Simulated scan of single mutants.
Amino acid sequence: MAHIKRFAGIPMSKCMREMCREEDYMFLQDPRDQGKTPEGTTLQDTEWQQKREERIRRRVEREQQEQERQRQLEEQQRKKEEEWRSHVAKLASERESLRDRLHRLREFRDFQKKVLIQDLGLDPDSSNEKLTKILRRL
């Protein structure tokens, strides 16, 4: 009966009172009445506690998902860095092998030139067209 008096005590127009039901205004309970209905408050407390636990659980799940996503991003970044390092090392190795090959070819070319100069009996200091033509053929 107290709730009927409380509902009647809520200031509103006649038109509004006809549209609204008493249950729509149950949230306007007097805070002093909280202790008078322990069954209702424990039900509300358990609902509130369940909602709170659900929010906490969802927050923990989001944090775990974020940590997992961050870990995956870091792992991908490490893989990319490792691939890049191996790629750079491979290119450096290829460049070094090309330099070594160029050096060996130049040494061989100098050796051929010396042998031709000795075989033809030419002066090593002079530039001879015949020697140049022979070297180009080779």
Rank of each mutant, 00 (worst) to 15 (best):
K36F: 10
R99V: 04
R59C: 04
C20A: 15
R85G: 03
R109A: 15
T37I: 07
T37G: 01
Q29A: 11
Y25N: 09
V60G: 00
L120C: 06
Q72W: 00
I117W: 03
W48L: 14
F27C: 09
R109Q: 11
R17E: 02
R106Y: 06
K5C: 08
S127E: 09
R32P: 01
E66P: 01
R137T: 09
A2P: 14
L122P: 09
P38L: 02
K51C: 08
R99G: 03
K130E: 08
K5H: 10
G121L: 08
K51S: 05
L122D: 04
E68V: 07
H3P: 03
R137Y: 14
K133Y: 06
A2V: 08
E39P: 00
D100K: 15
W84Y: 09
L135P: 02
Q65D: 03
D30I: 11
Q72F: 01
S86I: 13
E39L: 12
E39S: 12
H3A: 03
Q34I: 11
L102A: 14
R104S: 15
C15P: 10
L122R: 03
G40I: 07
E47L: 15
E66C: 04
E107A: 06
D100N: 15
I117D: 00
S86H: 11
S13V: 08
L120V: 05
Q50K: 14
R137A: 11
I117T: 12
I4C: 01
R71T: 07
D119R: 12
G40K: 14
R62P: 01
R62C: 03
P124S: 05
D33E: 14
D30M: 07
P11F: 00
Q76I: 07
L122E: 00
D33P: 11
C20G: 07
A89F: 02
L135N: 06
D110Q: 10
G40C: 09
R55H: 02
Q112M: 13
L98T: 02
E74C: 00
E129V: 06
S86L: 15
L120S: 03
T41M: 13
F108W: 05
A2M: 09
V115M: 03
S13L: 09
E54V: 02
I56E: 14
R57K: 10
R136N: 13
T42Y: 04
K133M: 11
R21V: 02
F111S: 04
L102W: 01
F27P: 02
L43P: 00
R136M: 10
E68C: 04
K130G: 07
R57F: 14
G9H: 11
D125M: 01
D123R: 14
L120A: 02
G121A: 10
K14G: 12
V88C: 11
M26D: 05
G9M: 06
K79Q: 13
Q65T: 01
S93R: 11
S127A: 13
D45G: 10
E22F: 13
D100F: 04
G9N: 06
D123G: 02
Q34H: 04
A8G: 14
K5Y: 08
F7C: 10
D24V: 08
R109N: 02
G40Y: 08
R136H: 04
R71H: 03
H103M: 06
E81S: 12
